[in-house]
Nucleic acid binder design. Sequence first.
DNA 1: CTTCATACCGAACACATCGTACGGAAACGG
DNA 2: CCGTTTCCGTACGATGTGTTCGGTATGAAG
Lengths: 198, 198
Amino acid sequence: MSGDRRVRRTRRLVQQALVELILEKGYDAVTVTDVIARADVGRSTFYAHFTDKQDVLFSNLDELAFLHRLPAAGETGELFAFSRPMFEHVREQERLVRALLGRRSGGLVQARGEELLAAAVRNELVAAGARPSAELDLLVVCVVGAFMGLMRAWVDGATSASPAELDAAFRAAVTPGVRLALPPDGCAGSGPVTVVGG
Amino acid sequence: MSGDRRVRRTRRLVQQALVELILEKGYDAVTVTDVIARADVGRSTFYAHFTDKQDVLFSNLDELAFLHRLPAAGETGELFAFSRPMFEHVREQERLVRALLGRRSGGLVQARGEELLAAAVRNELVAAGARPSAELDLLVVCVVGAFMGLMRAWVDGATSASPAELDAAFRAAVTPGVRLALPPDGCAGSGPVTVVGG
DNA sequence: CTTCATACCGAACACATCGTACGGAAACGG
DNA sequence: CCGTTTCCGTACGATGTGTTCGGTATGAAG
């Protein structure tokens, strides 16, 4: 990989320690002192690699970067194709996601996630024939808000629904409204777009 | 009013100081020491009234809590009657809301706001004839998520839409999906319920 | 294996913030 | 006017932060 083996080791230990501690105590309650104790790493070593706690948090984000290769509409012929794979993926990476997105960590990561998702959703809707406009952007905000709301509720343990049920709930709540913002059937460009309900 | 004049004065000074400082530095960067300096209040006095920073934040929220007297469905015969008044109210209290809900303050207030709103929305839907169930709760999460998403986008300056436009966007995105979860017209108990579009 | 670079350790440091305690001064309500 | 409550100011111990520095050990390259 890149560089010294000792470096990789240290970074990995610190990242893992932070995730564990967030899950135990919540982001705010975790101190740098906690992290270096759990990681069994010298204090000066920590600050040689990271500037602070938040820096470690964000360094973890790269591992969640499957966000960048979301399936796009047109490929699958289905709107919001990201929904179910996302819920599935989250269940697999449960520990990390819970640490990053949960109510116990700052809203920092959530904000970034919303941006990425909003861009993807907007592209999808435009590809499906929606006219770019201020109204469309507000619709996108609503769609993303609903999705992230479900995600938060799930991660915070407010619901025990399965990925399939969450996906269904998301579509049931959102697609009827989205449909009205799309042009009537049978004309759009890139392939057959269907809004699936279950 | 309630109690000693000195008490009211102190609490008011502290609350105002916190809001000012959040707007200047962001919630996380504000310290109790900052607050008591700005409020010109003794340290021990602060802790005589509040347990910590977050306590002050939440005490502010209560005064914003026209959330508790949200017009319920059945009274107005209109679903989500809270929407437009809320956006209007937010515009008036812009400084405070920006301080409380903005990306600069922790997700604390947002989480609490979501809870209050979720309870209200759920009551409305049940009053409108929806059967309490796990699916209903997920629908509520979506509705609240969409609303809060709009709120955040607005507060963060991502859109310059008017309260009326935000209200319209919210309803356009959400009501079609909600309708499908309600029983067909003409039977529910408490008065005529109509889902208004614009 | 030797050499050299560099990452690590550990302890100490100055600094900031927190939450509490206490006696005396001030302001309140009646 | 007087008893009560609140406020002030200061000081305190505890905890966390981010940096510095000399010595050690572990890595990679020849």
